[in-house]
Simulated assay, not measured.
Amino acid sequence: MTSTDTRPTTLDAAQVRTWLEQPDGPRVLDVRTPGEFAAAHIPGSYNVPLDLVTEHRRKLAEQIDEDVVLVCRSGARATRAGEALSSTGLPHLHVLDGGVQAWEAAGGDLVRGDGTWDLERQVRLVAGGIVLTGVLASTVLPAAKWVSAGIGAGLTGAALTDTCAMGMMLSRLPHNRRHSPELEDVLAQLRG
């Protein structure tokens, strides 16, 4: 399943499961937050959060000489990580289509632990809380409705661009960075 093109290819959960059963299976890099990774991850995967990938792509690429499958919750962050790593010329990049959600739906095993909610769930909680507060506050202060409108506009933009500023901000909170790997530790794991 190797590729000579440096752009990441997309694989479904069944393809990745079959490939991982092979002796020359790929390395799986999970680009979710450390908290999400601690909650549930594919056995044998390495946690390399997206911000670490984008900031240190060249150093990471120097340590990777085999096929890599990038994983996140749904595939969006893994795709961004793939684009960042492919910009270094790194070949053999693959993205798990549908991410951990698709993996679990296809019957794939997950290592479960104590972690935080998925980032998407955190975004729904914060956005919903702000919208609800804005609507309730607008019964007393009519201008407060614009807070809810701003969140709605932000969520629409997030859907259209497949990025989420609120999610990126939430990923930097301490409870999402708990167990955050240091670059040197990630590089040592990749070398080993």
Rank of each mutant, 00 (worst) to 15 (best):
H41C: 03
P43S: 08
Y46Q: 12
N47I: 03
L50H: 01
L52F: 02
L52T: 14
L52K: 02
V53Y: 01
T54R: 15
T54G: 10
E55W: 05
R57T: 01
R58T: 14
R58G: 10
R58L: 10
A61Q: 00
A61L: 06
E62Y: 00
E62L: 12
Q63P: 02
I64F: 09
I64Q: 07
D65Q: 12
D67G: 10
V68K: 05
V68A: 02
L70G: 07
L70Y: 04
L70T: 06
V71L: 12
V71C: 13
V71A: 12
S74D: 07
A76R: 13
T79R: 08
T79V: 02
R80Q: 15
G82A: 04
A84Y: 04
L85P: 05
S86L: 09
G89N: 09
P91V: 12
L96F: 12
G99N: 09
V100A: 11
V100R: 06
V100N: 03
W103K: 05
A105W: 00
A106H: 04
G108V: 05
D109L: 14
L110C: 05
L110D: 02
V111W: 00
G113Y: 12
G113N: 03
D114P: 09
T116W: 02
W117P: 05
W117C: 00
D118C: 03
D118A: 15
L119P: 06
R121V: 12
Q122R: 14
Q122G: 08
Q122H: 04
V123M: 08
R124K: 14
R124P: 01
V126R: 04
V126P: 09
A127Y: 13
G128Y: 09
G128V: 02
G129S: 10
I130C: 03
I130Q: 01
I130A: 12
I130P: 03
L132A: 15
L132E: 09
T133F: 14
T133G: 15
T133L: 15
G134H: 06
L136T: 12
L136H: 01
T139C: 06
V140K: 04
P142G: 08
P142K: 04
A143C: 01
A143G: 09
A143Q: 14
A144S: 15
A144P: 07
K145G: 04
K145H: 11
S148Y: 02
S148L: 10
G150I: 07
I151S: 01
G152R: 10
A153K: 03
G154D: 10
L155Q: 11
T156P: 05
T156H: 03
G157W: 11
A158V: 00
A158N: 12
A159P: 02
A159I: 14
T161P: 00
T161G: 06
C164Y: 04
C164F: 04
A165K: 11
M166Q: 07
M166D: 05
M166K: 00
G167V: 01
G167C: 10
M168G: 06
M169W: 15
M169E: 02
L170C: 09
L170S: 06
L170G: 06
L173V: 11
P174A: 10
P174T: 11
R177H: 00
H179K: 14
E182K: 14
E184M: 10
D185A: 15
D185C: 04
